[in-house]
Nucleic acid binder design. Structure first.
Lengths: 225, 225
DNA sequence: TTTAAAATATGATATTTGTCATAGTTTGAG
DNA sequence: CTCAAACTATGACAAATATCATATTTTAAA
């Protein structure tokens, strides 16, 4: 079994604020899992009963809206913790998590995390700081959704994915999303997302090869209105 | 000077988790302020350097978008704390706060709150829980913005204000917002908000008297699509 | 109370986005 | 490798929303 103390991923999230002893305890009770691309990790309304620490891979957090469409609220990266919010507020989760690539994750049971939240104020403050940042980001998303055009939001989604997840050797975005996923990020109809991406292609801002997308003109893409 | 220990408002926010001693210390260093309707409490990009505890009145939290329009991200009620997020993440504020009615607030300096966040884990956990709830609400706002029509968002905004702030003796919504404010809540042009409110009036869902709005048919308003 | 400024209201029109239909392309299970 | 299912693409049209112009009403300062 792998050891949390020597896990690099921990550097990127609040677990870095745990003591040596706490980490050893966590190591002893965590479960490592491999999750296949497309697999549901947890579903809206479920009791999650713990926290996932993402060692590798990408997943989407979605919420089903009244009209039956999934809205992608966040993309989760290597190093992120998944499920802290539901754990902290002691509620069923309000989001579903689905793997977008093969993932390596560790699951840490709820009571272990809660124990440390009560005992280690450095850890609690660190979780609090992460949540404060998430909230700030959520505010920005709200403003973008409310005030920007679909075209602009889609351009920004491409830039966000480029900046966050980077590219493969041949400069394609390394996270591969369906056109429907893109539509669900920016909150539009799938056909509209496809149409706008086609337009971006015609304008030389991007190129595509199947589902893969390459950003050809980042400067102009940033200026899209 | 009024006493935090005996302040009823404290029941509604995280300050209820402070000890008697901590409350006495806070009482000694807080400042009470009256803020006039329309007055700016703090502006986006400012260092807030503390937390506001809202004793009475209502204010809006806004963020300026790239197109020059203010987006209202949240309405703050009696009992809410203002500015915890910036304090916790130690950043300048990302939102502006403007009074929508005359307000009574207490300002508690940053170092006092930070002290308690380090020493009192009950308090820290309570702040964390409040922030987790705010984040969940923000997720819901994102989904609504992305997936619902302007008409539907406006109907929901009216219902939200009705449920949260209630009505005056003559059943008018007790929080008075301009049409521009309504537009900035739902993220639309002021003319569009006015037009839709006019339509709601024609359809008998609401009635108006100047800026005041009365909900006439809550059931049908809830069904607006 | 008066009156100018601000806010609300509404028409005409342009633009954006959604919906439905259908065709072409890619992908992955067997 | 094959082929059906899933995804992508695009046209035609409908609906929602934005923009600009202008009139009317309300508000608040003098």
């Amino acid at each position: 079994m792998s050891n949390c103390e020597q896990c690099i991923v921990r550097q990127f999230n609040s677990l870095k604020s745990l003591t040596k002893e706490e980490l050893i305890r966590i190591s002893g009770c965590k479960t490592s899992k491999t999750i296949k691309k497309g697999q549901l990790i947890f579903d809206e309304g479920e009791n999650v009963n713990g926290v996932y620490c993402i060692k590798d891979g990408v997943c989407k957090l979605t919420k089903l809206s009244a009209n039956g469409k999934d809205q992608i609220v966040k993309l989760v990266v290597k190093g992120d913790l998944l499920g802290q919010r539901s754990l902290v507020s002691d509620e069923v989760t309000n989001l579903s998590a689905t793997a977008l690539s093969e993932m390596q994750v560790c699951f840490i049971p709820k009571q272990e995390i809660m124990h440390d939240l009560h005992e280690n104020s450095d850890f609690t403050l660190d979780v609090l700081q992460h949540m404060a940042k998430d909230l700030r980001k959520a505010d920005n998303v709200i403003v973008n959704m409310a005030q920007k055009s679909v075209r602009q939001r889609l351009a920004e989604a491409l830039i966000y994915i480029y900046n966050t997840f980077g590219t493969t050797e041949d400069d394609m975005l390394s996270v591969i999303l369906s056109r429907e996923d893109y539509a669900n990020i920016v909150g539009t109809a799938t056909e509209s997302a496809i149409r706008i991406l086609s337009q971006f292609k015609k304008d030389g801002l991007i190129s595509t090869k199947g589902k893969q997308i390459k950003i050809e003109d980042l400067v102009t893409l940033k200026r899209v209105e």
